[in-house]
């Protein structure tokens, strides 16, 4: 597990982002165990208090849940998972839209290009 953090954004947000990505991509399955806080801090080489903060935030957002004296687990709540995926997509689209903002391009022109891109991505995956 290696993550390169940037130095100007709060680390706890970067840790959360990292886990959200693992969840939406299915690399972490619903109900799966999370690493312990200490273990994660050690692996990512970051401050344990920061990991604690990230976990608390994720608990608040119900992405993970923790029973006393047990490791935290990824949520199995379909509503939360759906919400996370939507949020992720919304975020990505916002970024995409703002990136193409300077270009004068219509939706009709854009759709085939997107389809093309999606196809090649699927090919690359195979």
């Amino acid at each position: 597990m290696t993550v390169s953090f940037n130095k100007r954004d709060p680390i706890y947000l970067q840790v959360m982002h990292y886990f959200k990505r693992l969840i939406v991509s299915g690399e972490l399955l619903p109900g799966e165990e999370m690493p312990s806080r200490r273990q994660l801090a050690n692996e990512l080489k970051i401050n344990p208090n920061t990991v604690q903060r990230a976990y608390s935030e994720m608990e608040e957002q119900r992405l993970i849940h923790t029973e006393p004296n047990r490791p935290s687990r990824i949520t199995e709540d379909p509503v939360v998972l759906e919400q996370l995926k939507n949020e992720w997509l919304k975020q990505a689209m916002t970024t995409f839209i703002s990136a193409i903002q300077p270009l004068d391009i219509s939706l009709n022109e854009l759709v085939p290009l997107l389809e093309e891109k999606m196809k090649t991505r699927k090919k690359d995956d195979k």
């Binding site: 100007r8 709060p10 680390i11 706890y12 947000l13 401050n47 208090n49 920061t50």
Partner: peptide
């Protein structure tokens, strides 16, 4: 350090 990143977007070195 974390608060500095969160509230001012500055790294420690900044």
């Amino acid at each position: 350090a974390e608060e500095m990143r969160e509230t001012e977007g500055k790294s420690v070195v900044d």
